[in-house]
Amino acid sequence: MSRTILISGGSRGLGAELVTGFRAQGCNVASFSRSKTAFIEAMEGSADFHWQAIDGRDHEAVHGFVNDTASRFGRVDVLVNNTGIATDSVLPLMRPDDIIDMVDTNLTAALLLAQSCSRVMLRQASGCIVNISSVNAIRGHEGVAVYSATKAALDGFTRSLARELGPRNIRVNSVAPGYFETDMVKGMEPAQMDRIARRTPLRRLARIEEIAAAVHFLASEQASFITGQTLVVDGGITC
């Protein structure tokens, strides 16, 4: 039986990479995002793919999407909590609404999506949740205090939820990527990217498929005895 993978924010970046990878493995994939991209349009109508335009902060719509996915494919085997936003600004200069928006998007939405999926997983007595964290949850960096707070909270959530759901055969882990080549670093100056590469023991940024590979591993049977962990994929920058 094909596995069913639910990925939040699957229209671009790491989410899109994961959608492609899981479909290549023969999985059914469900995803939502705020807007439709050419990547999503190309898959519309495929029997193994389900997408809907939803803002992840709309909790009722997200809950309905999870239940629709479970009805359509019969189960939800893996959740990848991928949606996230990042802005580069020091805390004293941030608008309060932007702080609230980041916490809602990066944290609250992830908790509530995991809650909805965990209910389906409880019924099927199996499942796997992978939260996309960040190296900013582990090391402090100027300009990302709120982002760091949301990602560190996600790692704490991962550990406690693993304790809660482990006895029901549901694993919960997180992947903490370092800087990788995606839309989120496009705005960086070349000098800044060079500086990051120099500080990284492997002397480069990650390729997006290297981050996706960590998610695929944690979602696979090869990781069947791993839960409550944060897998750091950063070329050694935090070691």
Binding site: S118, R119, V120, L122, R123, E164, L165, P167, R168
Partner: peptide
Amino acid sequence: SMDLALLVSELEA
């Protein structure tokens, strides 16, 4: 608590 969570999930379904 987890039994109750399962119960609520099944009743919702």
